[in-house]
Nucleic acid binder design. Structure first.
Lengths: 322, 322
DNA sequence: CTGAAAGCGCTAACAC
DNA sequence: GTGTTAGCGCTTTCAG
């Protein structure tokens, strides 16, 4: 691997001049620069990132740490982040699991977006002492920490109230992972809306945000002595599972039971029938907002303006037509 | 940020001893090590990755470079890779777009898995002079380059032949991006199977592997003067779009038209009706295989055994019952 | 405009 | 077992 020394030698200049030329520092003579560039090109020179990062104390990398790589929500957010990060001439670096903590601690990234409620809070707080962090869908306080949280409870609250007004009365909840922040908030909104109407939740089914877990919940719902007339699912994937279980049992949706989800993942997917009532989040925009905010924070390294909250919109579809 | 010097000073030892202790080099006195570790812990010391990488010329990072972050195929492969990489105590680092090339050139990763047929081949070949690279679903020759390609053409060939035997006669093809390697191979297999049976492809519809593009193709198919009785789609997502378009026009699948896809992405998703005939690839296993192979190559830095080809399996489902 | 040289934080000979 | 030290490849003062 050629180093900057090789470039300097072959171009007949010192390393510092080579460095200036390579980095487009204006004070170098255009002819010299040209020569250096040509040599670099010819020997296929590329700066060593580790050396540069060590010296400059910056990596130009934005870390994105996620819980897993599956699901439409994750994909859309990531695409949004990716777009902005590239436009700002930085690199995106996605990781998952415990490598993520390592990368933060060892400073492989200049700033981070964390979308993983299981991520060690201590590590985040520590890292954020020196670098900005945007935390998606988790509340966390601290210097340089910017949580971006949607109104989970409020949105669910509104949806449920609307459903009550439509005449639904016997509600059950299909839950995401118990610890998940957004799941807890959604459950809270659900319970509160019912309470305000003098209703009680008939049952709580434990799921994990996947379609199969929704399907399993659906099976249980079918076997209930008194079936509910409305199933609220903490996300859309589980709602699909529930609907499938009901279909197999020939229980009509929405005639017999209304079903709703959260996220809006399938709004554009016409093959979902009946179309699913949901709370739609523009995840792509969310990713863009988060990344823009983060990079602004990094570059101004001071106060950042703008609100970071993703907007949710209730979308009433066929699955709750009553 | 504390450095190893700080640790050494506070522990009353030299930096080399501190380094040995922190890296579990056996020849250091257990008591000394303990003291060093405690100091490190107490001041929240973490080694600087850039410095370590610069010195050791290794990063412990496996790069995974993808075309985009969307879709089930991508997710599953990534989960498979992630599992193996973690088990082998390395870090996974996913990136997309032109950052990817940069990361390769600047040596931010020790080895790479590339799943992006638009990736600059030159860059790969250059990088692979010193580090192993596994290329998914693209043929590429060169030192240290290990392509992992499924039998796209053969599998499609078999499926189409089977469909011909079932009595289908008027075939159309819904294509992925024209340049995509796997798409081209699949088309080749499709054409050949038809040719061998003395049949001709009635039409070729340009798509891009997304459901909406399949839907658009479906609309066109409906308006054909002589409709096909079989639609082969280069992947499952497009097949869903086609089926939806047909459903909206009340054209029965499989009664009037058979539909098949590729990937097996929806085999476990019961809400797809009719269930889709497809060529199933175990992407999770594929990711695992690729990662295992790559890390072996990296560590033995020599010959690596084992076959790297993902296995495909034809799955006849409801969408082609004739 | 260009060069000499210090030093980022770490590892690994080598010497004791 | 532990300490001294060179040096990884680069940027950036500081001199000239």
């Amino acid at each position: 691997m050629p180093t900057i020394k090789d470039v300097a030698r072959k171009a007949g200049v010192s390393v510092s001049t080579a460095s200036y030329a390579l980095n487009n520092v204006p004070l170098v003579n255009p002819e010299t620069r040209k020569r250096v560039m040509e040599v670099a090109e010819s020997i296929n020179y590329h700066p060593n990132a580790s050396a540069r990062n060590l010296k400059t104390k910056r990596t130009n990398n934005i870390g994105v740490f996620v819980y897993g790589f599956s699901g439409p929500v994750f994909s859309e957010i990531l695409e949004g982040i990716n777009k902005v990060v590239h436009a700002r001439h930085m690199n995106i670096l996605v990781s998952s699991g415990k490598s993520s903590s390592m990368m933060l601690k060892e400073k492989q990234v200049d700033a981070a977006i964390i979308f993983d409620s299981s991520f060690d809070k201590q590590v985040i707080v520590q890292y954020a002492k020196n670098s900005p962090v945007v935390v998606l869908d988790t509340f966390l306080k601290g210097k340089n920490i910017y949580p971006s949280v949607m109104d989970n409870d409020l949105l669910v609250h509104q949806l449920i109230r609307q459903m009550i007004n439509q005449g639904y009365q016997r509600f059950v909840y299909v839950s995401g992972p118990q610890e998940a922040f957004n799941n807890k908030e959604r459950y809270k909104g659900y319970l509160q809306a019912l309470a305000e109407a003098g209703l009680k939740s008939q049952q709580y089914f434990q799921g994990d945000f996947t379609t199969p877990s929704g399907y399993a919940a659906g099976k249980q719902i079918i076997s209930m002595k008194t079936r509910p007339d409305f199933v609220f699912c903490a996300n859309d994937e589980m709602a699909l599972g529930v609907m499938e279980a009901l279909r197999e049992a020939s229980i009509g949706v929405p005639e017999a039971i209304g079903v709703a989800g959260f996220d809006g993942s399938y709004l554009n997917n016409p093959y979902i029938r009946p179309s699913l009532t949901t709370i739609s989040i523009d995840h792509y925009a969310w990713g863009q907002t988060a990344a823009t905010f983060l990079i602004d924070a990094l570059q101004q390294s001071g106060e950042v303006k703008g609100v970071l909250k993703p907007i949710g919109k209730i979308m009433i579809k066929e699955s709750t037509q009553r």
